[in-house]
Design a protein around this nucleic acid. Sequence first.
DNA 1: AACCCGGGGCA
DNA 2: TGCCCAGGGTT
Length: 345
Amino acid sequence: MLYAWYLANARDLPWRIGPADRARGARPDPYAVWLSEIMLQQTTVMHAAPYYLKFIQRWPSVSDLAEADDADVMAAWAGLGYYARARNLLKCARQVSDLGGFPDTVKGLKALPGIGPYTAGALAALAFNRSEAAIDGNVERVFARLLAETTPFPKAKSKLSIIVSSLVPEKTPAEFAEGLMDLGAMICTPKQPNCPACPLISLCQAYRQGDPQTYPVKAPKTPKPERSGHAFLLTHQGHLLLERRAQTGLLGGMLGVPGSTWTEQASADCEGAPIGADWTYRGDVRHVFTHFSLVLKVWQAEWSGQRGSANVHGEWVAYEDISGLPTVFFKAVKLLSQTSPISER
DNA sequence: AACCCGGGGCA
DNA sequence: TGCCCAGGGTT
């Protein structure tokens, strides 16, 4: 049932090969599958697709990516979020390049940076046609509904994983994986599932109960704390001071604007400024991270010293060359464009 | 097992 | 504007 639906309804995505070609034995480029799967972790197809096309054009093979400069890759990733993925992407590309290619088993794949149980299963099934399950959020939702699973997630994960793994077909694991993911993305959606169009409707216990959208059941979530801090836009003749953040921690390895630490209690005005200067308040920026929401007070000053001076550390970037900033800093820099034009991310 | 990591879509 | 979504790494 799922297989026939997949053949007729499979999404045509840039990193895929079509069901007809796959049935003839064609396999996608493991590099393309890997790149897409890393980008699709916590990210929608719609949002990841332009990034995928940009990456695959700029770095067409895993060895091209392995030889890329870290800063170029981080900048190209800017806006996708979860920047540890970009750091692991590079690490992984370099390991795979040294190995001479991707491992073709779940065990070998899972040993690589940035590849966990889901991505390992997806790559093994999609690129190497191994009989492995690729259990992502879509698949979990589909099965939580099929079985009307009342155990709240994430506790139900291991139980579902055993069931899904036992159902993977020997000959067509890729079609099974992509079929379930497409079903979850197109029909068995989180909010308003289109049950009448579902090929599995006769098997679905949640549908029989009349309340499919109440699954999967989730554990209650903890409230997000508030944090605040200051960001400093130090300008000098059409240039802005930016700094490379530490490799680990929040927004690690990304370019950012100087600032105070972000704390739960408001700090004094201009605390953490890169230099003493005549700072002008330019407004607030609000941004919500996974585990806290942030209010950033943005200050600006025109520097009177020389750009090459050792008094400040960081890099001076001309307004028109500013790119590769995480969204929170992009929002802050945008406050500057009220007086001077900054267009590109 | 619990916690650390963004950002976009949608009501 | 607030809520929802959701893999991997680290400890």
